[in-house]
Design a protein around this nucleic acid. Sequence first.
DNA 1: GGGAGGATGGAT
DNA 2: TCCATCCTCCCA
Length: 188
Amino acid sequence: MSSKLLQPTDFASTDTVSLARELVGKHLVCSYPKNKRIAQVITETEAYDGPEDLACHASKGRTARTEVMFGPPGHWYVYLVYGMHEMLNLVTGPVDYPAAILIRATSEISGPGRLSKRLGIDRRFNGRPAAPTTELHLEDRGTSFADHEIEATPRIGIDYAGPDWSQRPYRFVAKKAAIERVAADANR
DNA sequence: GGGAGGATGGAT
DNA sequence: TCCATCCTCCCA
């Protein structure tokens, strides 16, 4: 099967929500020694879109933590939440446009905290480029989900962002049946 | 320097 | 429903 290596510049669009939708179905590829080589299909994402988005960390301004989100696209933004879970995000949009996509699950791992733990991802990855030559990158291996196979829902755990932002359908989840279909295709 | 709260997940 | 656990950010 053909595999297209995704470059940081592929995430330069300011249309964070569309990018989040498109990221579902792409492969997350880890190639560092600890895990040998692992490639899993991304099945759930959330968009955090710019300074106006009250659920986006960058809406509170530019700080040491959020600095990476203001940087160039296609870089990893990894932070700790609840004192124990590392969240893996991909920075999107041009420089000075603070936006990112939270990768919440793959076909084999449910939950953003578990995902990073299982793959050995922590804040050491913060600020690194998601380039094909690095230890953690993205590939398009031809997997695709039809629109009806992906559900758009409000994001998780951000009620503090107020009724407008907390209810926007910025979370994209592949349906269970679709994930099983993709898994079956992969075993052929 | 102190304190409140958080883009979760596992146990109860 | 509870809470482990600690970083981030605001306020003093």
